[in-house]
Nucleic acid binder design. Structure first.
Lengths: 358, 358
DNA sequence: TTGTAAGCGTTATCAC
DNA sequence: GTGATAACGCTTACAA
């Protein structure tokens, strides 16, 4: 009841009030009844004292003593991107339900920044890190620290860290096959500028394989991370110079939006004159005119699995196998359908794969 | 050169290698040259030793000793909302450039959760907190802790914490006046369910004042935080039951999107049959059909000011005055214009819209 | 110009 | 069953 300035209430204060030793307070409050059987009255006294003083152990002191900070780190390219925003939100609540707090950092796809953040967090003493890496340069140093790391959204070759996310190759191939079936052959691709993101290569390759022999990616247009007016105009101009283009594919949500803007600026009607599709779903995708056909990722599941993997690793039981979650082709109206065949649309709503995966 | 397991390199290790005392290491590395003038050779030896061992002081130990964690907290309703996502991103880089790390928590507009997070962070030892409060219940307890707090996006009455953000009353009034000038009179408002967010009341009041005597808010429709299908349908139904409605106003970005969805579901054409406008701009707003007229907030400036306020407070020089940043009416095409008067649109441009002509 | 030693608040080891 | 005591890694009077 006696609300003291909270901050400065220490275990010694509680001990004094309860008439016991600091260590007794610590053990009782931590439920360390392993070897120690306390008198019920002592337990009661300590608990009452702690409550009345509103005692909360200093996590700093505890961290120093135990070596665990109960802090996890999340490193992504850009937390303001809706994909990472949703991911972060889900990860935060997941971790919090296990008493971990979350620290967040953005790399802006810059490898040096990523390296700094990794180093920072490790030295800061986080118990584990979830990262969507911009690339694998400078990672080796972090790997030797021993801090558990889980890769999310983007796999990395050459490290032992497990990856949680969709199979990007497959997801893009699925989209490619769908495009092929609809008769699209001349494709323009919009992708982020991040040179070292391996995911983009997988998506690109998967797309091309899905498109088959007759399909051709005639250009790849890179846009900046926080897409702006300049990107929009440049892309729009490129579109004007490509009158024979069949369809545009955005490799991330931002890219797809930028593509949509540019198509509108260039005065190309979707899907009649030209098709549009993308990887990553987003809130407004179904609101646009036309609603966008996309491959969507199961963000909540990815977050849940990533958290679960990290918790395992932090408790000393690291998983080594990757966790591939299913992506989903969401058919809307930004691609023209083959004449007279409409039920085909439903088939694709839930399709997996029928070919050999690699 | 000798890359040791990083984690366990302590100041004593550096001291031993340099042939000096721990305290010497500490002082030199912290540039505490106030009273201590070291021999250049000592300085050199220490720095070399530190670098060769890749020494980084344990922030935990430092925090315990100094009482400063170099950690700041951000508490918002939902980090996956694009507004808060952008805000968080900007705040994070701002703080980081001053060597502060950022911890993030979401309240889902729940007062109990907010209270818990505040308490958590304070006891966790953060040096300061930036919060977009869900309400002022349970805040008193936090205020007495002495931890500096800056309010962002939502002001709070009865506390000494400074507020950084737009003038919500004014912003909404601006929109209301614009609606009145366009001849709108019968208004439906869509707002989030958060019962205790004072901002919503201000926006509502400002809107009504701007609308003037002849304007009437005929209903207010509350939707859940992570707006879903159910909200969409319920709102759609309400719209169907309001055939005489002039215009719908969304009080947040999500609300406006939901309104757009519902209007589409209900088959009401915007802006011909009914108008739509909102508070908060978002990436896809200009891409929708029609592009949405909104009042936008200067997110970057808000973040920068909030960081600046927090830094001041954390360094012992708290500001007490609020910081009101200018909002901006962005006129697009989701409201019908008065017959035959089009340059009126340009007049409003001078208030600060950046309408994209095409 | 540098070293000594105390102490931040916990928890873990040992003793009784 | 419970209490003393050391230690985690760092900073900072106070000495020298």
């Amino acid at each position: 009841m006696c609300m003291k300035s909270a901050q400065s209430v220490t275990a010694s204060d509680v001990a004094r009030l309860a008439g016991v030793d600091r260590s007794t307070v610590s053990r009782i409050l931590n439920r360390s009844f392993d070897q120690h059987h306390y008198a019920p009255e002592t337990i009661d006294a300590v608990q009452k004292a702690a409550k009345s003083l509103n005692y909360r152990p200093s996590s700093t002191a505890r961290a120093l003593r135990t070596g665990r900070t109960m802090l996890a780190g999340l490193i992504v390219a850009d937390i303001s991107n809706s994909f990472f925003g949703q991911l972060a939100a889900a990860i935060e609540v997941g971790l919090r339900s296990h008493n971990y707090r979350l620290m967040i950092a953005s790399t802006s796809e810059d490898l040096a920044t990523q390296c700094r953040h990794l180093d920072d967090m490790i030295h800061q003493g986080v118990d584990g890190i979830i990262i969507s890496p911009a690339g694998n340069k400078g990672i080796a140093h972090a790997v030797s620290s021993g801090t558990p790391v889980v890769l999310v959204d983007r796999p990395l070759s050459g490290v032992s860290w497990p990856y949680v996310g969709i199979d990007n190759h497959n997801a893009a191939r699925q989209l490619g096959e769908y495009l092929r079936e609809l008769g699209y052959q001349t494709i323009g691709v919009v992708l982020p500028q991040s040179k070292d993101d391996p995911t983009l290569k997988w998506r690109l390759r998967g797309l091309e394989i899905g498109l088959g022999k007759r399909g051709r990616v005639v250009w790849k247009h890179a846009v900046s991370l926080r897409t702006g007016e300049a990107d929009r105009r440049a892309l729009s101009q490129r579109l004007s110079q490509s009158p024979n283009l069949d369809v545009v594919v955005g490799l991330t949500n931002d890219c797809t939006v930028t593509a949509m803007e540019a198509l509108r600026d260039a005065g190309r009607r979707v899907p009649d004159e030209i098709g549009l599709a993308g990887v990553d779903d987003f809130r407004a995708a179904q609101l646009l005119d036309p609603p966008l056909t996309v491959v969507s990722q199961p963000i909540e599941s990815i977050a849940a699995k990533a958290v679960s993997y990290l918790l395992d690793a932090m408790s000393g039981h690291p998983r080594t196998e990757d966790c591939l979650l299913p992506s989903q082709l969401i058919v809307r109206r930004s691609l023209r359908l083959p004449n007279g065949n409409t039920d085909h649309l439903d088939n694709f709503g839930s399709i997996g794969n029928k070919e050999t995966s690699r």
